[in-house]
Design a protein around this nucleic acid. Structure first.
Lengths: 182, 182
DNA sequence: CTCTGACATGTCAACCCTGACATGTGGAGC
DNA sequence: GCTCCACATGTCAGGGTTGACATGTCAGAG
């Protein structure tokens, strides 16, 4: 249950409508930190507003409401960020897959590991390109969030790629080993 | 909703009771792949049994039931592992915190980043020790799951540590920068 | 002027997960 | 023999999440 804190964090960087927040979750944030759809975001914003952690600061054309974080909201966010217990909710389908790879036979293992190696290489390259491409054309106030997070993603992709590559090498070595000595 | 596949994967490595599976989720698996408590495991095992993906192969003393995966279960697991769409559920409170660090003022940022750097270094060392300590005293059939997964964890910890260290350096540089030139 | 698509918000049933409650057994130590 | 603890399974209410349904507006292309 970290959705309220995710929203507080995004609003701490810049005011936004629920719609804009929902789109934020579709990019890097949702890719490796926390997912949320508009169906959970709108009700959560209402709840946060009721607790005075956020506030509607503007009402635009299409019934849009722009939210901003309040002082109390900032205090809540800060306390959540500082009192990290080290653990928390972890749920990652991709990592689970990696855990279970050894249950496959060698050919299938190779196929999955190869796919992972390729995907992480591509993802890393794509992300690196995106980060290099300046701090966004529109120089958003969330650029710094994106920069730090992006570099984190880069490191994760690289580590995963190296892991998969090494696993592939060992797999090949083991197969070669079991074929030869008879 | 990958719990059924997590269970199929564990059972593919070796038959086990629900209780043993629940403990499996308390270690590395639950730490960085997928969490589950016995309250969701027991009902899920019943559902899997109803779909003939697992089967009760033994009933022990304290009303314990040992489950094993069936041929259909193996097929389902394999298809899930091979047809990776690249994405899936991602929910990680720790990573979310990292995303939101830039919303803090420099002093708080330093404190959080330092904590992360220390924790990841400690976690890496502890994990490395555990992996080195032989392939388990009891040479479990799940040892290989643990080895590959453990090395993955090692890489992630290291990458995160390096990321935090670099962020700290830049933070210091920026603070020094803004203090001097006036 | 019409149509399309992005903008924008909302609800609801179904499903999943968590924490608390509930129950009972077998072995080891005193 | 008793007591404690790990073993072992289960249910259930409350809360979070998802996907589908529902509605409506504004701007730009044709």
């Amino acid at each position: 249950m970290s959705l309220p804190h995710a929203l507080l964090g995004l609003l701490a960087a810049a005011p936004a409508t629920g719609y804009e927040l929902a789109r934020e979750f579709e990019s890097d944030l949702g890719r490796y930190a926390w997912q949320a759809g508009h169906a959970s975001i709108y009700p959560e914003l209402a709840k946060l507003a009721a607790r005075d952690l956020v506030r509607v600061v503007d009402q635009g054309p299409r019934g849009s409401k722009t939210y901003d974080i309040t002082e109390q909201g900032r205090a809540e966010l800060r306390s959540w960020l500082l009192h990290r217990s080290g653990d928390g909710v972890v749920r990652n389908e991709g990592v689970l897959r990696m855990f279970l790879i050894p249950t496959l036979d060698p050919d299938d293992q190779r196929s999955v590991l190869t796919a992972i190696a390729e995907e992480t290489a591509a993802a890393e390259a794509e992300l690196r390109e995106r980060l290099k491409g300046g701090t966004d054309p529109r120089c958003s106030p969330r650029a710094e969030l994106g920069l730090l997070a992006g570099r984190f993603g880069l490191g994760q992709y690289r580590a995963t790629h190296e892991w998969a590559t090494r696993a592939l090498e060992e797999l090949d070595a083991r197969v070669a080993d079991s074929r030869r000595p008879n």
